[in-house]
Computed example of a mutant assay.
Amino acid sequence: MMVPLGVVMRRTPGVTRWAAWAWRAVAVLPGASPADWRELRRDGDMVEYHAGTVMLDLHHTQTEAYLSALAAQVPSVFVMLRNRAGADLASAPFDVVLVTASPFEAQDYADNGEDIVEKVPMPEGLVALVRDFIEAHHEEEVFKKRRRDKLGEGPAQDGIGDARIVQPRDVFATPERMRRGRLN
């Protein structure tokens, strides 16, 4: 199931002299039309933009992850952003790459070090849609304890170094010690 989601980014003045602006993903707009950094609201120095619209792809094999997202204190989606090369930091510094309802997929993007992952609260309508999707497609996996294959324990060693096998002499003795007859 695919749902178009618009991503709302908020720009506020930076709090340090090294960052003129602070950017955050603050909301998603289910069913949004395509947009490219369209200004939505301005309040003094704070500006909100509809940064872009991407498709939220719900897949039947990921229902366990969606359950985890809905079980959170605040059900959320995760927005993946990537820095635009040579972009103006005051107007449109990011490309919206993906929006996902899977915290596991979001973790993969966070681990790559290239992308910025923002957690955004799900609107009530989107929570209901994801919950309905889970109810329609979720299948509990039955736990199966794996048993070891008794035949495939590996090749047998010849006993060298095995403390359970009595050796007539020290198999790890150096040739020098063996010539002198000292095996201890």
Score class of each variant (00 low, 15 high):
Thr100Asp: 08
Pro93Trp: 05
Leu98Gln: 15
Val99Ala: 10
Val99Pro: 08
Asp88Arg: 05
Leu98Ile: 11
Ala92Arg: 09
Phe104Ile: 07
Ala71Tyr: 04
Ser91Thr: 14
Asn112Leu: 10
Ala92Pro: 01
Asp108Glu: 14
Arg84Glu: 10
Ala101Leu: 08
Val79Ile: 15
Asp115Met: 06
Ala72Trp: 07
Gly113Glu: 04
Leu81Pro: 15
Pro75Trp: 03
Pro75Gln: 02
Leu81Glu: 13
Pro75Phe: 01
Leu81Asn: 13
Met80Val: 15
Pro103Leu: 00
Pro93Tyr: 01
Glu114Lys: 12
Val99Arg: 09
Ala85Cys: 11
Val97Arg: 04
Asn112Tyr: 10
Asp115Thr: 05
Asn83Met: 11
Ile116Val: 14
Val79Trp: 14
Met80Leu: 10
Ala71Met: 07
Ala110Trp: 01
Ala69Met: 06
Gly86Tyr: 04
Val79Met: 14
Pro75Tyr: 03
Ser76Arg: 15
Ala101Asp: 04
Gly86Gln: 12
Gly86Pro: 05
Glu114Cys: 01
Thr100Ala: 07
Gly113Tyr: 04
Glu114Leu: 14
Glu114Asp: 10
Pro103Thr: 00
Ser76Leu: 08
Pro93Asn: 03
Val77Phe: 10
Phe104Asn: 00
Asp115Trp: 06
Glu105Asn: 03
Phe78Ser: 03
Ser91Met: 07
Arg84Gln: 11
Tyr109Met: 06
Ala110Arg: 13
Asn112Cys: 14
Asp88Ala: 09
Thr100Met: 11
Ala87Pro: 10
Leu98Cys: 13
Asp95Arg: 13
Asp95Ser: 12
Asn83Lys: 13
Glu105Tyr: 03
Val96Trp: 05
Pro103Lys: 02
Ala106Lys: 04
Gly86His: 12
Asp88Lys: 02
Thr100Asn: 11
Ala71Gln: 09
Val77Trp: 08
Leu70Glu: 15
Tyr109Pro: 00
Ala69Glu: 11
Ala92Trp: 02
Ala87Val: 06
Met80Gly: 02
Pro103His: 02
Asp88Gln: 03
Ala87Arg: 06
Asp111Thr: 08
Pro103Phe: 03
Val117Pro: 00
Ala106Trp: 00
Ile116Glu: 03
Asp88Pro: 04
Asp108Gln: 15
Glu114Ala: 09
Arg82Thr: 07
Leu98Asn: 15
Asn83Pro: 13
Ser91Lys: 06
Asn112Trp: 11
Gln73Met: 08
Val96Lys: 04
Ala90Ser: 14
Phe78Met: 06
Gln107Leu: 11
Val74Glu: 13
Val97Cys: 08
Tyr109Gln: 01
Asp95Phe: 11
Gly86Lys: 06
Ala85Glu: 14
Ala92Ser: 10
Gly86Trp: 07
Tyr109Leu: 00
Ala110Leu: 06
Phe94Asp: 04
Leu98Glu: 15
Ala92Glu: 08
Asp88Leu: 03
Phe94Met: 06
Ala69Val: 12
Gly113Ser: 05
Ala71Lys: 12
Gln73Trp: 02
Phe78Gly: 00
Ser102Pro: 09
Ala69Pro: 13
